[in-house]
């Protein structure tokens, strides 16, 4: 096609501008379509549009909202953020969210790792059954399972307390004592999130070459040494990515706390999302609510950069 166009005399090209333009456009399109990256881009386009419309736009809009005054009539820069930092309750919320997210992610990772090992050591036939059963908490819609847990912890008619008192133990104020309430919401988050770690770690364990363990066994390594020197280094990237992903999701958790305690008693179980909901939707201060929900964004973004950089570095080393 390119040769054909080049054989036309300059006069002819000048006299048929329409033909020349459409031909070069077709040529450009063909070249564009031949590139693998172009095809990849086109195939990703629907997703890009969805993400832009449902994630990027709301995110940018909430950043814009967080810089407006209460009536949304005036740009006030970072005043909402400085105002939040001056409030006792907000500082309490920062502390609580950090406790909630860090402890929940730690226990989810730990339980995920232990159960992944246990399942990995089961015979192949039994593994499928256990994998299916242990994934159930992660599959049930969180709002429903949180309601189920709320019924178990019900302040007055707790099923768990019924069992405890039947066995002769004292009842536990699961939701009415602030510290027990914190424990309860973390427990439910761990229950819900541990299967995600389990499935990721199980996949990682399956990818560790068996020969490494065999070589270590010949060298006389025990189970613990194999775990420390083979399993963990081979899983570091998966651990880093799952921890990062879970950290982001747990910091933004809303359902569990809202359904079980709504931030009480005495504001002592509020996390960013529930506090933002209270300020933004219930009290009608959308800019302050937006500022609250965005508060962790820069910290998590920096954490993500460092964790992902580590992942890339290790990837290059392995590669």
């Amino acid at each position: 096609m390119a040769d054909t166009v080049q054989t036309w005399s300059p006069d002819l090209q000048g006299s048929l501008p329409g033909i020349s333009a459409s031909a070069s456009a077709r040529r450009g399109l063909r070249l564009f379509m031949r590139r693998r990256s172009s095809i990849a881009f086109l195939m990703c386009l629907p997703l890009i549009v969805i993400i832009a419309g449902l994630v990027l736009y709301p995110a940018c809009y909430s950043i814009y909202l967080s810089m407006l005054n209460k009536a949304q009539t005036r740009f006030i820069g970072l005043d909402n953020f400085t105002f939040l930092l001056s409030r006792d309750v907000f500082r309490q919320v920062v502390e609580q969210t950090a406790i909630f997210a860090l402890s929940a992610v730690f226990f989810k990772a730990l339980i995920g790792l232990i159960t992944a090992h246990l399942i990995n050591n089961l015979p192949a036939k039994g593994q499928r059954k256990w994998r299916g059963m242990l994934l159930v908490p992660w599959v049930i819609p969180l709002a429903l399972s949180s309601l189920g847990w709320w019924w178990l912890f019900d302040p007055t008619h707790s099923a768990l307390n019924y069992v405890l008192s039947s066995l002769g133990f004292d009842e536990i104020p699961w939701l009415s004592s602030p510290y027990w309430a914190r424990f309860s919401v973390i427990l439910v988050n761990v229950w819900y999130g541990a299967p995600f770690f389990l499935i990721m770690y199980l996949a990682a364990l399956k990818s560790v070459p068996e020969q490494l363990y065999e070589a270590a066994a010949i060298d006389g390594a025990n189970a613990w040494q194999k775990f420390i020197h083979i399993t963990l280094p081979m899983m570091r990237n998966i651990i880093a990515i799952t921890v990062l992903f879970s950290l982001i999701v747990t910091f933004a958790n809303f359902d569990i706390v809202q359904i079980m305690t709504a931030g009480g008693p005495r504001n002592m179980t509020h996390v960013f999302a529930t506090y933002a909901f209270m300020l933004g939707i219930r009290s009608g201060d959308l800019p302050l609510g937006a500022a609250t929900s965005l508060f962790m964004f820069p910290i998590l973004a920096i954490a993500a950069i460092f964790i992902l950089r580590g992942v890339r570095k290790r990837g290059r080393e392995i590669g």
């Binding site: 302040p155 007055t156 008619h157 104020p173 939701l175 009415s176 004592s177 309430a181 305690t261 709504a262 009480g264 008693p265 005495r266």
Partner: peptide
């Protein structure tokens, strides 16, 4: 009762 600190709007009804 000590659980009043955790009641939602239906707690007293129940």
């Amino acid at each position: 009762p000590p659980e009043v600190y955790a009641w939602d709007d239906a707690g007293n009804n129940r």
